[in-house]
Nucleic acid binder design. Structure first.
Lengths: 101, 101
DNA sequence: TTAATATATGAATACATGTTCATATATTTT
DNA sequence: AAAATATATGAACATGTATTCATATATTAA
């Protein structure tokens, strides 16, 4: 059972994953580093909006940034992030279970 | 890679888990059914607020309700929900990893 | 039926937040 | 140096939402 502070921290991470635009960005970053411009293209969001969201995801250590020349590449911070997201993807992908569990 | 609709659905689940009060409720329901009144006591939130949140969690099939006499008991809907939450708890509990992964 | 307990709901509100627009900063190229 | 490309940031706004308060509904007890 997490402490109160941990619970708030966990909620904060879920909250950040709980916006469709941010989640799309995050999903695109699961398999490897993606440049900001590409994220904008892939998600259909504006460059500005993507940048704003990236700042939040970076601050929460959900994504990690790395600069290569003019471009900045973002990738999932670690395997835990990846597993939480893929777990939820699997959850939604599966058919509904029986109610009498 | 989830479809756009699936992504929105996943974001909605994360969003619901992303509020501290709701997450506290959800965590209390991980190990077994808990009555509404007890959830209010355990989380320190008002009965009304707990009920409002329970409605959202129930509607999203994150929690399942079962009535026994006067009381209504809530529990995590399935193992996927449990694993997503416990995964995140483990993630936060662990020390920071090296950046050169 | 009335009273008591347990939960749910509707309205109102204060606050948070996602998005856009304009602009600033950083990096490379010429 | 200036121009071009890529990303970041600040302000403003419109919308969403967590919470409270009062009240309604459901179930059991007397």
């Amino acid at each position: 059972m997490p402490t109160n502070d941990e619970t708030i921290e966990i909620a904060e991470m879920f909250r950040l994953m709980g916006d469709p635009t941010r989640l799309k960005i995050l999903i695109q970053c699961l398999d490897g580093p993606v440049a900001v411009g590409d994220l904008a293209r892939l998600t259909g969001a504006s460059q500005s909006l993507v940048s704003h969201h990236l700042r939040l995801l970076r601050a929460a250590r959900i994504l990690a940034a790395e600069r290569r020349g003019k471009k900045v590449y973002y990738a999932a911070a670690d395997d835990h992030i990846r597993s939480v997201v893929t777990d939820m993807i699997d959850h939604v992908a599966e058919p509904l279970e029986d109610g009498d569990a």
